[in-house]
């Protein structure tokens, strides 16, 4: 069964279409990234999928249960880490987890065992009984993640989980989320406007802009669709010999025609891993010497710019 199945999900406020015809699925245990700038409709999509907002049209199922017709069934099966803070500053991490267990009707002994397990996972055992107001932003985020996992949800929603964190805290949260993917096997819907985050955590990525889902693919597939990888060969000596050799190689191993910019040959290739050995061999037999060698892959940022015509960071 699919962990999440959204079909033509839409939300309109009057004439404004916050979310329009969004369709995607998440398999059990899969991490899916919704990538887009602020205001793209990611959080609205999450609000509909987590039963907090009624869709204007379309439907969605969580582990087979309809978000509109069976909100209670859906709520027992999801864990949510909201975009903004959602802790009570005067309660401790342990108190938050305890209250959560009560709300989700967990038996007491199971709740206690799970609390210890998760506090260990998010590395907060030492600070578990302090008021969360005394914890750092990254630690609070980890409390929220642990809390969302308490009742072993089928789908974990992470709405911009590292927004507002400094780079070090962000990396720490990523490490933790990767460990969690290995140990918990929960399906995850991750929304982010952070390229690296999507590439690192998500198996598949959907690009969202102006309320529409533009493209869904594996990060590598999205980049491949944008174009081939390009091998940059900067020559120290023997440029002529190399140019001739490269021309003979064209068409083999998915290697395209080299474009020379000064002392650098830019060779488009279908897949770098297949093409690089052949290229290096040609360099060696031609007698040329290289000053540098680089494979450039289009980034998700390049994909985003190509699909939406603007960069993620300066998107309004």
């Amino acid at each position: 069964m699919l962990a999440l199945d959204a079909r033509a999900l839409s939300k309109a406020y009057g004439k404004v279409h916050a979310v329009q015809d969004v369709t995607f699925t998440i398999a059990e245990g899969e991490t899916f990234g919704l990538l887009g700038p602020n205001g793209a409709g990611k959080t609205t999509t999450v609000a509909m999928l987590t039963t907090l907002l009624a869709p204007s049209a379309g439907s969605a199922r969580i582990a087979g249960h309809d978000v509109v017709a069976e909100p209670h069934e859906v709520r027992t099966r999801i864990g949510v880490v909201f975009q903004g803070p959602s802790l009570d500053a005067q309660l401790s991490a342990r108190q938050h987890l305890r209250f959560h267990a009560r709300l989700y009707h967990m038996p007491r002994d199971r709740a206690l065992a799970r609390t210890d397990e998760l506090l260990r996972l998010v590395e907060l055992e030492q600070r578990a009984d302090e008021r969360v107001s005394r914890l750092s932003g990254g630690m609070r985020r980890r409390v929220e993640i642990a809390r969302a996992l308490m009742h072993r949800p089928k789908v974990l929603f992470l709405d911009e989980p590292t927004v507002g964190l400094d780079p070090q805290a962000r990396r720490h949260v990523w490490d933790m989320l990767e460990r969690l993917q290995r140990e918990e096997g929960t399906a995850v819907l991750l929304t982010t406007h952070h390229m690296e985050e999507a590439e690192r955590l998500a198996r598949r990525v959907g690009i969202m802009d102006h309320g529409k889902l533009l493209d869904v693919a594996e990060p590598a597939g999205l980049k491949a669709a944008l174009g081939a990888e390009v091998v940059h060969l900067r020559v120290a000596a023997g440029q002529k010999a190399l140019a001739a050799a490269l021309a003979r190689l064209q068409g083999k191993q998915g290697i395209g025609a080299a474009v020379w910019r000064g002392d650098t040959a830019e060779v488009p290739v279908a897949a770098a891993d297949a093409a690089v050995p052949a290229l290096l061999e040609v360099v060696a037999t031609s007698g040329a010497r290289l000053a540098s060698f680089e494979v450039r892959r289009p980034s998700l940022e390049d994909v985003f710019i190509a699909r939406t015509g603007r960069a993620l960071r300066d998107a309004p």
Binding site: F82, L87, L103
Partner: peptide, 16 residues
């Protein structure tokens, strides 16, 4: 106040 701090969301998304 729980709405302002965001804590209310935790309760609204629970099966309660």
């Amino acid at each position: 106040r729980d709405r302002d701090t965001g804590f209310l969301k935790e309760m609204l998304v629970a099966p309660v």
